[in-house]
Design a binder for these strands. Structure first.
Lengths: 213, 213
DNA sequence: CTGCAAGTCATGGATTTCCATAAGTGCGGC
DNA sequence: GCCGCACTTATGGAAATCCATGACTTGCAG
């Protein structure tokens, strides 16, 4: 009944614990990949699936919290920390930086499994949103330079006439760019385009607002 | 140089500590109000200012974490926990639920002041956003029932004609409602209205999309 | 040099939107 | 009963948008 296409990465230098965790997860129908150091984890090719990272705080090469910091820039699975000698400042830092949980040994199987399920569910969400955003970004990159000029003006609410004046081109030309933008961005309406632009964080330019907020 | 119109609430049953904290804050130009129990804090009238709540975990009436849970529904200032006998699960829970920091006694003055500054800055942000959203909600409540029907259809990208058909009314009537919506919501353009609707989480209805994402 | 993509512009017609004026219905409160 | 509000509709003209067709320039790659 457990979800199929997911994976759990285990980074811990304790061989026995890695094995025990692997068996626990397997018994619950969850695939896992063990790593004995942070470097191993970083250097490995990881499958592109909803995942979770079980990370020991104390590692031979670099600290677990430091690994968290290093991978924070890019895309990475949610982290569940485990530790034998945890302290409060570490746990606070870990959670503040987005860790799903911070478990101290000995922890119960259920506590860990709960944390893992939560982490994987969260990763599913994140990945879905990321995928949508990636699609939008791809489309945005297909725009020509001029079309990228037109987009922010249009979604700012300017009339074609005004946007054309802003760019110093004729209204007709602007309409052509505008139509191309709608097509390339796969927007079915202006409202749609506005929402897409919001998600791409396209800034508002020269809004024609005169009062209001 | 410290910010003027801010306030720090201190909830701790230790008289000496309340006083010491009050003095520390006063010395740094920060106003504070002390409370000796969670009940006192809950029952008090609190000024409407960017604020921060310094909260002891161990309190005579209800637990600090439980207080956090209780006030979580409504608007409340960011919390900085302090505790004499903290444990990791408590700290994890506190931060997960949004606390800014979780300090164990003895903590340094600078650590506390840093946390407070961060909390107040965060509250400033939150309050600003909340104020904008409140304004939008007020405007939304000024809409007539029919106007509230029209809004989602319009921001979904439907043509007036289509939206009118959807409601079973004439296009002219819909145009009037539409114009009233724009005015009452203080939207300067359709693009503007779409963004406002996004913030109010107005759901998309009957989008005219046919393909796409 | 040829071809292509990007950018530019014009014309013209169909459709839609914007706006003002005028007016009818139904409902709740004074 | 009368007033006002919300909702409804029609007419008609001005402005804007949507769309297709055709055409010119520039710059770059083959």
């Amino acid at each position: 009944m457990t979800v199929d296409d997911t994976i759990v990465f285990i980074v811990d230098d304790d061989d026995a614990l890695r094995e025990a965790l692997g068996e626990l997860l397997a018994a619950n129908g969850v695939r896992s990949v063990p790593f004995s150091s942070a470097g191993d984890y970083i250097g490995s090719n990881k499958p592109d699936l909803p995942a979770c990272l079980i990370l020991d705080v104390e590692l031979p090469d670099i600290n677990g919290l430091e690994l968290q910091r290093q991978i924070a820039q890019g895309d990475h699975p949610p982290i569940v920390f485990i530790t034998g000698h945890g302290d409060i400042p570490s746990s606070v830092r870990a959670i503040k930086h987005g860790a799903v949980d911070f478990l101290t040994k000995p922890f119960s199987d259920t506590a860990l499994l709960l944390a893992i399920r939560s982490a994987i569910a969260q990763d599913r969400e994140t990945r879905a949103k990321r995928a949508e955003l990636t699609l939008l970004k791809q489309r945005y990159h297909e725009l020509s330079p001029r079309e990228r000029d037109v987009l922010p003006l249009v979604v700012s609410g300017l009339l074609n006439k005004q946007a054309a004046a802003e760019l110093g081109i004729s209204e007709v030309t602007l309409q052509i760019h505008r139509r191309n933008v709608m097509q390339k961005m796969a927007a079915s309406s202006l409202a749609d385009l506005v929402r897409i632009a919001e998600r791409l964080e396209i800034p508002i330019q020269h809004s024609r607002r005169m009062g209001g907020i």
